[in-house]
Design a binder for these strands. Structure first.
Lengths: 170, 170
DNA sequence: TGCCCACTTGACACGGTGTCAATTGACGTC
DNA sequence: GACGTCAATTGACACCGTGTCAAGTGGGCA
């Protein structure tokens, strides 16, 4: 909080006039990024995709390009979640929203009869949601040195191979 | 530290006589678990596997059964890693050892000419290492409610589908 | 002129980690 | 039986980060 106040050119106490806790500040920051970076617009291609496969691809692309932009805040929020209830709830909320996107993509596949018979819809959603986690992005890009493009490409092809049936089911 | 001392029936200060920092205590705990739970022995099936595919399966099984046993300590170590250098180094070390196992499994596949042409060995190792992360285990078992068995089964089949070539290469 | 309001200054409480000094008590040794 | 050792105890304290509080300052507007 001291550092942030300094960077903002105000005192720590003035910062508390705007955000009564550290968690509140971080949460507000995520909302601010969403607005500034026009996150909603980026999801349009996914929502309007013609086929399940396209929807899956578009969703992964949107999410992959979103992660780096919230990564710093996300990391702070995640590490606060261990000890801070407000932060934990806020992050869980984010993740629930992200999961809805996964669920929608998997369901679009299912409606096209293109969901792999290996997984139930719930299992597929669980798995996709886990695969696309911020931690996995960190692991591949930051720790393994993958480029953003390689991350997105790999995730797209991986999701296809895991979740798309070889032939239409039934 | 206060809580741990209480549970151990000694004072906080006495605890510091044994472990000079919190990080040191956690690191010692992981070593202790390794000994008590005979972790090395569990890796024997993987090391002695006849084929690459068997090695991959055996490694995933060994790791999957290991995670729940160190999960508590791992979580503490991971969350300390953000702020504590010693913890960060210790956890990175663990993960490097785990990565070697992934690398060995992928290489065994490659030697059998059964590594999927989709990935270079390095990429495959990166991906397997990321997929098997403690965070992903947490996500699937704790957050999504998967049983330990389902986790292990899914990871095994997923790794096969991702990394094992349909036909021998060349 | 006078008020409001954002902000400042400076202090303090709390909890957690890590440190230090003095003391206690059990143990084996001379 | 006296002695030293050593683990552990008691009780204090420093430091850091979060969050709180009270009193004061200064600019803008009615």
């Amino acid at each position: 909080m001291t550092d942030i106040a300094k960077r903002a050119g105000i005192t720590r106490q003035a910062l508390y006039l705007h955000f009564s806790t550290r968690a509140e500040l971080l949460i507000a920051s995520t909302h601010h990024v969403d607005v500034v970076r026009a996150v909603d617009e980026r999801l349009v291609p996914s929502r309007t995709a013609a086929t399940g496969i396209e929807r899956l691809d578009a969703y992964i692309d949107a999410w992959a390009s979103y992660i780096p932009e919230i990564h710093g805040i996300a990391k702070a929020l995640i590490s606060m979640s261990d000890t801070d209830d407000a932060a934990s709830v806020a992050w869980a909320d984010r993740m629930r929203a992200m999961r809805q996107g996964c669920d929608a993509a998997i369901n679009a596949l299912r409606k096209d009869k293109m969901l792999s018979p290996h997984y139930s819809p719930k299992q597929a959603t669980d798995l996709l949601w886990t695969l696309l986690s911020v931690r996995n992005w960190e692991s591949l890009t930051i720790e393994c040195g993958w480029s953003q493009k390689r991350y997105a490409d790999t995730m797209r092809s991986l999701a296809r191979r895991l979740f798309v049936a070889e032939q239409p089911t039934h």
